[in-house]
Structure formats: structure tokens, C-alpha cells
Design a protein around this nucleic acid. Structure first.
Lengths: 181, 181
DNA sequence: GTTTGCATGTAATTCGTTACATGATTCT
DNA sequence: AGAATCATGTAACGAATTACATGCAAAC
């Protein structure tokens, strides 16, 4: 089975929360789900046309003619639900960082150490960002319904726990490196 | 800057350890670095031709005519090193699982719970696999030079720590889910 | 009045996957 | 004798990125 266009489902998912334009969808991607999902205009617009063609979404009447407000149809909801309940496909992992590290054995020790400290630093910054969002959620700054709260909180916690794991890993490897080589 | 063909560097890296055929390279991907890298024949062979063309690799004399043994050239080593010392490009993340979870707020509670337990189960199995490899490394079953040991051990530890974090995360979210909804 | 943000789209390109096609060698 | 593994490649396709192109509206 070929890799299937996931953008379809991202768009359907977003429109299942609230109707909006292609631009709105992009904004949602760049804010709410940015930590684990990305889309770009060059893909959103063609897929929107495609979904419209298939009857999974429809256009709502818009205040401005140059603004196309899309809404999910009943058929779209059904198709989205079918995707939702089937288990996520296996995604082949590709970590350029680990690839580099694997083949770094002949690099000077200092290079490897700075490679790891930079990587750790990046994750420290990422963690700070996550924690800020977490605080905003807790303080109720971000406006969401209590019913949806957990579903925005969970991916954030995922980011926090994974990032903390990476930071610990860096400590561990840096220590091994300093003791050994 | 466009996403650059990473397969080039994976191949150069593998050939920097030991020369071999396209088939050997694929085998290396499917065993040694399988946990964080993947390649397929349909991409390996064209890229090998390309690298040969650019003079980054060369063919060694082979015992069999239907077997092409590739070796990295000096030029290839230089280019590989240049890539190695520059920081890894930012890689856009895409987690289909987190995307699904985000839009699961209207799914029945039981569905969400089984979604999470399945995901956790999968990571438990992954962890078992990692730990087996770790034991093999410790017992010296896998034949490697002491100098390279850390560079095979580190990515493995990365997998173990990240996977443990995901398992903890599942526990946390499952508990929140059971208490709340 | 100029910059920033809103808004939509197309074209070119590249990367990577899958399927197809073929055949030799080794193991059981 | 047949299955598994070794071995190399091409063709078709699809997904996603980037660059290009355009113009309105609002804020400063």
C-alpha cells in the first residue's frame, strides 16, 4: 500500500473543528499543531480543490468574494472518522542527527562534544517553549472548551516528555564521551 | 534552501566504514541503522550512479562481474566530512498518531483508550527489541571495534530513552482520561 | 503612505516509494 | 528440486517543498 496523502485528513480534521479558509487552515497548522504537524500553501490549496471535488467539503457563503470559506460535509465527516479509528500507519523514521553521530567516530573529540551540546541546547530551548504554552493552557489564556482541553494538552505533554528524554540522553552520552575517548 | 538528498550522505557514510555493493548498503540500513534510518533499492542504485559520476565514489575490482563493489574516494571523504560537521537541518515533524489524537475529542472514550494502549503496547515491543540489541552489544556478540562502540551504542540509547518517555506519556494520558471524561 | 498581514493559486522540482523485471547463487 | 538470498536496475507515481505570481485590507 502506497503512502497516502495525509494532508487530506489534516484538513478534514481542522475543518471538523471549525470552518475556514485555506489561509485559516495554514494558520491553525502553524500555531495549534505546529509541534507535530506541518502543511504549506502549495499543498493545501490543491488538496482543498480535490476534497471539494469529492464532496467531502463544501463552500459556505462568504462576506468577501476573494475569501473561500470551507466547511466539512456529512460525507467528509464519515470519511474522516474512518481514518481516525484505524491505527496510524507505521512511519519510517529518519534522524539526520543520529546518522551524523553514527559516522562521527573519526571526528575530533571536541567536534563531537559541541555537536551534542548544540543539540542539547536546541532541545532546552524547545522545552522552554513547550512549558510556556503549558502554563498558558493551565492559566486558561488559550481559549478552549473543557471538552477539547485534554486533546490539546496531550500532544504538548508528549513534546515535553520526549524532549526531556533527549536532554537526558545528551547528558549521558556526553559523560560517556568525556570518560572514554 | 531546498531539502537536500540525504541518501547521498547515508551512502557515503556507510562506504566510509567499508566498501561494498548496493545490496550491502541496503543490508547495513536494514540492520545497523534501521532504528533511525531507511533506504530502498529504488533510490540507492540511482544515487550510486550519480555519486560515481561525480567522482565521490569509485568501483573496486570485483570477484564477480555482476557485483559492483563501491569504495569512497578522497573527494568523497572530503564532501562527507563537510556535511558531517555542519549542524543537522531542521526536520519538520509529522506524527500521524498525534494528529489523530488531537481530533479524537468526539470519539467514544473506549476508542481513545484502546488507541493509546495499542500505541503503548507497540512501544513496549520496540523497547524489548532495543534492550535485546543493547545486551548483545554489552556481551560483545556484535563484532565492532572498541573505537566505534560508542557510536553504535549512542543511537540505541536514544531509542531506549525516547521510547521509555513515550510509554510514560501513555500512562499519564490514560490516567487523565480515566479520571476526567 | 508604506509595511504587514490576509488571501489564493500555479509551476517546477525533488525526494522517495512501490511495482516491475530479471537472473545468479547458495542452502536445504 | 525448490526456496531463500544475493544482486542490479528501471518506470510510474505520489507527496511535499519551494519559488513564483498577484492583489486587497488593515494597521502604524
Amino acid at each position: 500500500m502506497a503512502i497516502k496523502n495525509k494532508t487530506r485528513y489534516a484538513i478534514l480534521g481542522i475543518l471538523s473543528i471549525h470552518s475556514g479558509t485555506g489561509y485559516d487552515i495554514k494558520k491553525y497548522c502553524d500555531t495549534v499543531i505546529v509541534n507535530f504537524w506541518n502543511e504549506n500553501f502549495g499543498h493545501i490549496y490543491p488538496v482543498l480543490s480535490q476534497l471539494l471535488n469529492e464532496g467531502l467539503i463544501k463552500t459556505e457563503n462568504s462576506p468577501s468574494p476573494r475569501k473561500k470559506i470551507y466547511a466539512i460535509t456529512e460525507q467528509g465527516r464519515t470519511e474522516f472518522l474512518n481514518w481516525l479509528i484505524e491505527p496510524a500507519e507505521y512511519q519510517p523514521v529518519r534522524s539526520e542527527f543520529l546518522l551524523k553521530l553514527t559516522f562521527s567516530s573519526n571526528l575530533p573529540k571536541d567536534n563531537i562534544i559541541s555537536m551534542l551540546t548544540d543539540y542539547q541546547q536546541m532541545h532546552h530551548e524547545r522545552l522552554t517553549g513547550y512549558k510556556k504554552i503549558q502554563d498558558d493552557l493551565k492559566k486558561g489564556i488559550t481559549e478552549i472548551t473543557p471538552h477539547r482541553e485534554l486533546f490539546l494538552y496531550a500532544p504538548l505533554r508528549y513534546g515535553i516528555l520526549s524532549t526531556e528524554a533527549v536532554i537526558s540522553w545528551c547528558d549521558e552520552i556526553l559523560m560517556a564521551l568525556r570518560n572514554k575517548l
